[in-house]
Amino acid sequence: MFPAAFDYRAPSSLAEAVDILRQRGEEAKVMAGGQSLIPLLKLRFSQPALVVDIGRLPNLAGVERKDGHLRVGALTRHVQVESNTDLRTLCPILPEAAHWIADPLIRNQGTVGGSVCHADPQGDWGSVMLALDADFVARSESGERTIKAADFFQGPFTTALRPDEVLTEIRIPLAAHSAGAYNKLERKVGDFATVAVAVQVEMNGDKIAKAGIGLTSVGDRNLKARDAEKSLAGKQPTDEAIAEAARLAAAAAEPKADVRGSAEFKRDIVRVFVQRGLKTAVARARGGQ
């Protein structure tokens, strides 16, 4: 199984990359680590005329803390997030989610930016970024713009990025007394999620100041469970409040039956995982920082 022929460019600077995309963005596919794109090329589901390999661009990999934010470079590999020990207290949902992405070898090469731009509804990072209310920084020849996570994912394999744009960075707001959790049901290592739920909470005393909930594999894109998030704001994390949020999140899911299970099954797993995730996140937020 081999790809159909394509042309290939590997720009060495961001300026060169956006210049190529300005000219040929419509017929091009941008490749970061290639772990989502290359399988599609091999299956010939995707047959672009041009592959723009941004894997060699400098200064786009790594996670750093800056201006109250975490800045995750688009070319940061999953393994860099997974093995970053600082993140385990600073933003535990990130290494936890990274840990369950694909398999160890793919995590060595696949990137956070490539994964979110691929926008697979079964992808993990999208839900995490929705729960974290992250911002996506896109660059084109006309400049830089910021896209809210909630606006970024527009449908299956479709994002708000224009063909002439490249994602450079993801900005994640950091708050004190906050933490998250990622729960994923997969059939085996390397499988996409049957269902996964990202939960992030910010505590204010014994109350939840703010909650973020993202859902994986239960819609045509990663979903943000807004009603469930709102229901928690200002509430104590009692069993009742958590159960209500879980119920609302399950109601917001739009699962489809497939070989992994019925829609009812997936909806109920959303409920179970929101409950589990909230309990873990609250405990972590109280315990840490």
């Binding site: 049901l185 059939r187 049957t194 992994r260 299970g261 019925s262 099954f265 109920d268």
Partner: peptide, 10 residues
Amino acid sequence: TPDKVWAALR
């Protein structure tokens, strides 16, 4: 698979 066990439990 989990969905079948889940269905039996529920």
